[in-house]
Write a protein that binds this DNA or RNA. Structure first.
Lengths: 338, 338
DNA sequence: CTGAAAGCGCTAACAC
DNA sequence: GTGTTAGCGCTTTCAG
């Protein structure tokens, strides 16, 4: 009648007729156990439906088998850009193969962030994956300083030793702009991303480099900042057209901004791509369904996620004394209206 | 020099010149502590940068402050339909206000599901939120049977006592179809959802009810099954048009299916809404940007998430002897092309 | 190879 | 009010 509470190691040990230590060894796959004992233990475990208690284990091992995923981004952007979804999918896939659990954390408000730091510092997770850092965020340094392994998604802005995974944003942007130039465009505008994130900075750099390569002048009037959102794309496109009515191409540093730009162009009766060609970044399904289909730069977002997961695991295992950062290449997806 | 390991309760107690029990009381907000002691303890805590050890606490309290979010859905659908994102946002918002953590779990493969059940049964979480159950899934019953509080998103198909939160899918579908009828449509086709989920069943039921109300005949040739995906919408729309070339309206049980239908209609040069009117379900931003804008049924997805979070917390606290399920109403968003 | 014993850091019940 | 104590379930020496 004493089946009230869940079975523990002792219950199993008693049932299998061995000591508690042996059961523990079997569970943790130690080789120093006789086949006989092993079988008895396994039988007892299934009969009893025994499940190890994580808290107890982690109290002594000091490991939790949990990785925190921290997204420092507005929810709009996080759900609006498929990039995040892809990265997360890559992470979950890779992690689930190793039996690690993912703790999901949005750090939007300041309160969130403070609570989060306390939490992460509390050693409740074995490592942290930080996505989409803004500015020179001290969080990764704090965490690393306290000994928590961290891997970033997107290069940090300041100097850091924290390993990161990123896309070749500069190369992608350059490719996109060179493509525009190769089709004869001369007045290529740029709707740029936030300059407090490397992703924004790098894409602008790529744009500039391509202009130089192509022998085109760099014209401030052709550059307009945005925050990656569709609304920003609309605003920026209007400003650009007002300033330079005869521009013949637009490089938008994100897909949503490209869609915003398309909308404005359509409103004004400007033909795409005849009058103005548009190229986006961070390819989404929407890009090929749009009218006209949008040429974009595609990132290997899911592989980025997998790579992050791989890196954090290696770091947790204590490998990687000198953790390598990874930069995955991007690819231009050309979609010409037929 | 003994600052190697993180400070514990004892460290704090020593520093504050009190006993360990007192420190624990302060941390857990017990009122039976003198102001003097409380201050000393708090000072020691900040000076030491003390952070409670979760594992140790949960070993004795048997609570983890973690809620599992289980999504039994393909990743395509999960990221493709904004519905999920909205629900998750609602959950995270509500939960973070209570300091609970969310453990994110995708249960796509069979292996995932088995590992998951073991995990959840292992009492590593205080409760579970299950989203998008298929068929008569035994998981919620297993979990409830083992004493783990569960709240579902979407009514389960079989009989259960497990509380759930759902949208008024039937009412929404009825509203949509009645709207079509009110604009004079007589041959209203339906692209239905999976009939192993209540969401699919209910939307079909609503369609049928509306037909009856409007005095329209129920014609099997006008119904075509789909799995909510855009591809399914394409296939279904083609089949419908082949069978009933003169249909004058389509009710699609999901937005992606509606977009698929729109695509086929456009391909065939059929004017929307002049020749055929289309209504979708589960309103997405894409609906208003599409050409023409799509009339859809909007669910209160984020409130659903919040409600789920509220319910599970109540259940964990042991309230709700008879847990009430909630059904939130839907709203028809009419977007007529101007 | 295996049992016994010593904690991991914390809460809660119990005395003072 | 506050210190003390007894575990929570597990891993890990340490003997045998």
């Amino acid at each position: 009648m004493e089946k009230r509470s869940a079975p523990t190691l002792d219950t199993v040990a008693a049932r299998a007729g061995v000591g508690r230590g042996t059961v523990s060894r079997v569970i943790n796959g130690s080789s120093r156990v006789s086949q006989e004992a092993r079988d008895a233990v396994n039988r007892a475990i299934t009969e009893l439906g025994y499940v190890p208690n994580h808290a107890a284990r982690s109290l002594v091992t000091r490991r939790t088998d949990v990785i925190a995923l921290v997204i420092s981004e507005t929810e709009d952007r996080m759900w609006g850009e498929p990039y995040f979804a892809d990265v997360i999918r890559g992470i979950t896939r890779q992690l689930s193969e190793s039996g690690l659990r993912l703790m999901f954390t949005l750090a939007s408000t300041a309160e969130d962030r403070s609570r989060l730091e306390t939490y992460l510092l509390g050693k409740h997770v074995d490592g942290a994956l930080l996505i989409s850092l803004h500015g020179d965020d001290p969080l990764p340094r704090h965490l690393e300083g306290s000994g928590l392994p961290v891997v970033l998604c997107g290069a940090p802005v300041g100097e850091t030793d924290v390993p990161f995974v990123d896309s070749d944003n500069r190369g992608g942007a350059r490719q996109a702009v060179e493509h525009l130039a190769s089709t004869g465009r001369r007045r290529i505008a740029a709707i740029t991303g936030p300059q407090d994130m490397s992703v924004g900075i790098d894409r602008l750099t790529g744009y500039r480099e391509a202009l130089r390569t192509e022998g085109l002048p760099e014209d401030p009037a052709l550059m307009e900042p945005g925050d990656f959102s569709e609304a920003a794309g609309v605003t920026a496109m209007r400003a650009l057209l007002d300033r330079v009515p005869d521009l013949d191409a637009v490089f938008a540093a994100s897909d949503p901004m490209a869609f915003g730009a398309l909308r404005v162009l359509r409103e004004r009766g400007i033909r795409v791509p005849e009058d103005v060609a548009v190229v986006g970044f961070d390819d989404s399904p929407r890009a090929e369904h749009s009218e006209p289909p949008l040429t974009t730069v595609r990132q290997a977002a899911e592989p980025m996620g997998r790579e992050m997961a791989r890196l954090i695991q290696a770091r947790i295992r204590g490998e990687n004394p000198d953790p390598p950062s990874t930069i995955l290449s991007t690819r231009l997806i050309v979609r010409e209206s037929s």
